[in-house]
């Protein structure tokens, strides 16, 4: 059963990645090509039909996968690159440093992603970049806390004391012992945050705080769809978002299950 869910997650995530890759070189139609056949139902010429401007929905869904993946990867990268070092410092350093980082993290955690996105969009103009940066910043505390907690566990291991007796500087202990040993946990967190980022970006797109109208994204398509004139045009991007989030979540859970026995062994 476990194997099946992981496999299912892998397949869903694989489909997203594959369509993003294929859309780089080929889509059935130019995703921004406006045609006269508006709101046409699925047919052989338009597999998933067309939207209110007659643009091919299948092509737009494929191209939208690019944005979804890029936002997920970049947002997680921003959060991890800032959050993990801060978390390790908080877990290894003096109590004062740990407290400072912890409280700063709390403040940031209290700031909703939406508010950050509105602020950035107001300052720089709404784009996929501002949305990604907003999601990334809002996710920093998640990685910071995770990394701190994991670091504290590692610091209680004797091999850290042994490294210290061996004359290894604290910075080297962080790189050589702490980081490799907390990496699996961070990987699981990254998978979970990845799907959260996809969902958040879709939400921001829906509110018009992300991609411009010419960039096809799933959230944007959801926003532009007319539920009464053509319900399918709202259901399709909605289903794409739901399935992608489900896929990456299942994948993350799979990685966690796979790592659990090892974690028990470490303790």
């Amino acid at each position: 059963m476990k194997r099946f869910t992981v496999l299912f997650g892998l397949v869903l995530a694989g489909i997203v990645a594959l369509s993003a890759l294929v859309s780089l070189v080929w889509t059935p139609y130019n995703p921004n090509l406006v045609s006269s056949s508006r709101y046409s139902p699925p047919s052989w010429t338009h597999i998933l039909g067309t939207d209110r401007l007659g643009m091919d929905t299948f092509s737009r869904i494929m191209t939208g996968a690019q944005t979804t993946l890029v936002v997920g990867i970049l947002a997680v990268a921003i959060a991890a690159l800032i959050g993990v070092p801060l978390g390790i410092i908080a877990g290894m350093g003096r109590k004062v440093a740990g407290e400072l980082i912890g409280r700063a993290s709390d403040v940031l955690f209290a700031l909703p992603t939406l508010l950050l996105a509105v602020l950035l969009a107001a300052a720089k103009g709404a784009s996929v970049t501002t949305a990604t940066v907003a999601i990334g910043i809002a996710t920093i505390p998640v990685f910071q806390r995770m990394a701190r907690a994991a670091t504290l566990t590692i610091m209680s291991q004797d091999y850290v004391l042994a490294a210290e007796v061996s004359g290894t500087p604290r910075s080297m202990i962080a790189l050589r012992h702490v980081l490799p040993n907390i990496a699996p946990l961070l990987g699981v967190q990254a998978a979970a945050s990845f799907s959260m980022a996809i969902l958040a970006e879709a939400g921001l797109s829906y509110l018009g705080l992300s991609a411009s109208p010419t960039t096809p994204t799933w959230g944007r398509m959801l926003r532009d769809a007319n539920l009464f004139a053509a319900p399918l045009q709202a259901i399709i991007p909605g289903a794409a978002i739901a399935l992608a989030v489900l896929g990456f979540n299942l994948l993350g859970d799979g990685v966690r299950d796979y790592l659990d026995p090892r974690l028990q062994e470490v303790r």
Binding site: Q157, D158, Y159, R176, H177, N181, E265, V266
Partner: peptide, 11 residues
């Protein structure tokens, strides 16, 4: 150290 399971880095 007392316990080599803890004093040797598993990675």
């Amino acid at each position: 150290f007392q316990d080599p399971r803890s004093s040797l880095d598993p990675r």
